[in-house]
Structures are given as C-alpha cells and as structure tokens.
C-alpha cells in the first residue's frame, strides 16, 4: 500500500511516503493508524493525537472508520490551512 505523509505528520515520521505490506486484519483507516503507531517512536509521535490527523483515500477526504479495501493511495496530514 502506498502511504503519503504531509506537513508535520511528514516531519515527525521523517519521510514523505512509503510503500508498506499491510496485515490482512487492517480494515479501516483507524486500524491502519493503530498499526502504524506500533512501528516506532516517530510514528507514535506523529499519531499521538489521532483527532488531529486527517486522512484521504485515493485523494478524497475520509473519516477514520472508512474501509481501506480498494485503496491505491492513503495519505495522512494535519487539518488543512490553505486559503
């Protein structure tokens, strides 16, 4: 699965993205966040406040309970601040 990170999520994890083999039991975005948090202190720090991290699947905003089946690309980022 292709994962992308932006803004301070990217800075805390230390990379802009990566391709990871996900365990089959990961069904939702929230499952993926919980699993990522176990991968190391940088992930634990990036996802310390899951309520402050937003997600997009295939470049569309999704909620934490969104299923990841069929996803080509999942992105994690802080609330947006453009405009």
């Amino acid at each position: 699965m292709k994962l992308l990170y932006f803004a301070w999520v990217r800075e805390r994890i230390g990379r802009a993205g990566e391709t990871l083999e996900l365990p089959a039991e990961i069904r939702t975005v929230a499952d993926l966040v919980a699993w990522l948090k176990t991968r190391g202190p940088e992930y634990a720090e990036a996802f310390a406040r899951p309520d402050l991290v937003r997600a997009a699947i295939n470049q569309e905003h999704v909620k934490p309970d969104a299923p990841i089946a069929g996803a080509r690309e999942i992105a994690f980022f802080p609330p947006v601040t453009g405009g």
Partner: peptide
Amino acid sequence: YLKSRAPFWKKETAADGTGNWVDA
C-alpha cells in the same frame, strides 16, 4: 470550502529561522 478542504498546509518561518505550522 477551499480553506476547509483543499490540502494545503502553511508553515511560518520567523526572522530567527524557527518554523511553525499554522493551526487550523
């Protein structure tokens, strides 16, 4: 809607070089 949905993130850099991500 652009401000709440378009995926942009602002980071301010102060005169002393310190960076700060702008909060929503």
